[in-house]
């Protein structure tokens, strides 16, 4: 999950081999998409959610996403954020953590962030939040194999 237009659907397609329509426009995903991922002998259900800015839902899409977290209590939440806007998007990570959901934070759009001269201290961010962090550029597939490994490893530990 994550804010609108951060690349959730690209990651979903990579993990599931599915074909959710991807466009560079916020709010393209208006329904929940579900897909199956089989990797390393483990089979899991991956869910792609509509964009959500915070746990206090304003729009119908946000309500749908929160209700999903509440009723299905996912084994792991992959929070995808736009690395350029780390500061603006972290509050949603805080809310996922406050809710007690397991989190894997993915700083996406790293190509654009690097172009702006931004750099990230991943171990420090992992320490501050107490969760694992991945750097990715999903449209080029960068960081996605690593993401898949971490997701599988997390589920295997359960």
């Amino acid at each position: 999950m994550g804010s609108p237009n951060v690349g959730k659907s690209v990651i979903f397609n990579y993990l599931t081999g599915g074909r959710v329509q991807v466009s560079n426009y916020p709010g393209t995903t208006v329904e929940i998409a579900r897909g199956k991922m089989i990797w390393g002998g483990i089979s899991l259900e991956i869910v792609d959610t509509p964009g959500i800015y915070s746990f206090r839902p304003i729009t119908f899409e946000e309500q749908v996403t929160r209700r999903l977290l509440w009723t299905e209590k996912p084994a792991l939440v992959v929070h995808v954020i736009d690395a350029k806007n780390l500061e603006r998007m972290l509050p949603l990570s805080f809310q996922i953590l406050e809710a007690g959901l397991a989190l894997l934070l993915t700083l996406n759009m790293m190509d654009e962030a690097r172009r702006l001269g931004l750099s990230f201290n991943v171990p420090a961010l992992e320490r501050a939040l107490g969760v694992e962090v991945i750097l990715a550029t999903s449209i080029r597939g960068e960081g996605l194999p690593q993401l898949r490994e971490k997701v599988t490893a997390h589920v295997a530990r359960l």
Partner: peptide, 27 residues
């Protein structure tokens, strides 16, 4: 209360970002 909560989160996010993100001085 909701704005105080948003503000507290914003401050924390700002603190963490400042610690972990290196950026060119201007932006």
């Amino acid at each position: 209360l909701s704005s105080s909560i948003a503000l507290a989160r914003h401050r924390r996010a700002q603190a963490i970002t400042r610690e972990v993100m290196g950026k060119p001085s201007l932006r």
